[in-house]
Amino acid sequence: MAASVPAKRSTQLGDALFAGMVRAAGIFVLLLLGGIIVVLFIGGLPAFRQFGAGFLISDDWDPVQEVYGAAVPVFGTLITAVLALLMAVPLAFGIAFYLTELAPQWFRRPVGTAIELLAAVPSIIYGMWGFFVIVPIMAEYVQPFIIDNLGDLPLIGDFFQGPPFGTGLFTAAMILAVMIIPFIAATMRDVFLTVPAVFKESAYGLGCTTWEVMRSVVIPYTRVSVVGGIMLGLGRALGETMAVTFVIGNTNRIATTIFGPGNTIASIVALEFPESQSGSLKLSALLALGFILFVISFIVLAISRMLLKPGAKA
């Protein structure tokens, strides 16, 4: 069939076809993204209508009374992500600093590969590790210690009282930190390597120490990209579902301590979805939560994209 057509025309036709197909693929991604936002918004509309702006600030989540508020999961999502960043960034910086400036050449590749491999570990593995290893340690040693020593203090003692479950916001943040360290460390290492050797050599030539070179040359040069990498880690921490669900304690109350159980948007959606009737207000509230998470993640990713843009320097 195709053999009877002249070879040249076939090529032109092929080019046009191919261009059309890749254009369609590009547009498809945009449509997909827009479609998801629209579907989440429409799905969440009944909840937004019912509760109005109060949906964002109400900490009530009562499936029996059909009253839903987003405050607890939004609070849990933000606090675990921020805590995770506080733990992960210094460690990731240390890894990247060591790998680019201090480690012997033969050692850099295996460690670099190990970091990339860690980033590829499925989150459920981290969740199980957290649940079966970290949670018992927290329940057995860390929390009883805190409860015993701080629980009887006047006034603030109440914040540290209660049964030691081992799960909670702090445990979740720890697991998240371990999960995002590879991302942040890998990005930092890559951008540290982009610093032109001549800059660093000049600084060393002036008699700077390694730390001074890092502080005064490498970090200022890469600051924006480093922040972008941190934002990427933050993006992952915000949307992480399974690992967090395992260890956060799944409680729809605002915790009074950072060791208390809580909930995140992603984990409440994962947990409640199977038992939500189609057309119910609960399902709508879950979709509305999905929309809120989408907006938060979108903002974080947009900022990181902007900062990571090639040539974007402070």
Binding site: P63, G249, P261, E272
Partner: peptide
């Protein structure tokens, strides 16, 4: 199938 638990952890 899920309620507003007054105490404990899930």
């Amino acid at each position: 199938t899920s309620v507003k638990w007054p105490a404990g952890a899930g």
